[in-house]
């Protein structure tokens, strides 16, 4: 007793902050009346509720046992979260084939166990498979090689 459950405290704060952001944004929307609720009514109700719940979670966190903080997957976060973003940035410009190859390669670096050569081989295999399945067989309207490559003259 007397210690703080930091995970709960942080969770509570996250909820309070998100609730506050939504609540403040709702202020700019028409509330309407209980009879004809405007676009801001329901979100405002929820925002207040979320702030209250977040506050209660914070309050409770002071009366609980401390839980050891686990390690975060920092490396994983950079590469795994980066992969879809990279795909989004390049799929139109580079085209589907090079983009998915690089995306897979990027994701492969999230772990420590894959050697570079293995990663490249894996990316090649995934690219081949995905191109055959999604582009050729399912016929999704992806441009296989994009305009960026023709500028470079490849």
């Amino acid at each position: 007793m007397g210690s703080i459950n930091r995970a709960d405290l942080a969770a509570g704060l996250v909820f309070v902050i998100i609730g506050a952001v939504f609540g403040l944004t709702s202020l700019g929307l028409d509330m309407g009346s209980t009879l004809r609720m405007g676009p801001g009514y329901f979100p405002m109700l929820l925002s207040v509720l979320l702030v209250l719940l977040g506050g209660a979670i914070c309050f409770n966190s002071f009366r609980q046992m401390h839980i050891a903080v686990e390690p975060y997957a920092w490396r994983g976060m950079v590469f795994i979260l980066g992969a879809p973003v990279f795909f989004g940035l390049t799929v139109r410009g580079l085209g589907f084939v090079p983009s998915i190859f690089l995306t897979t390669l990027l994701a492969a670096f999230a772990g420590l166990k894959l050697r570079p050569l293995q990663a490249v081989l894996l990316a090649v295999a995934v690219t081949l498979f995905c191109t055959l399945v999604f582009s050729v067989a399912l016929g999704l309207p992806f441009r296989r090689f994009g305009p960026w490559l023709s500028v470079v003259g490849v």
Binding site: P84, G88, I100, T103, K113, L114
Partner: peptide, 15 residues
């Protein structure tokens, strides 16, 4: 092994 799987999963998710 898992380190072979998640790059594949990420590629599929993105597409």
């Amino acid at each position: 092994p898992y380190h072979l799987l998640f790059p594949i999963i990420m590629a599929f998710c993105s597409i």
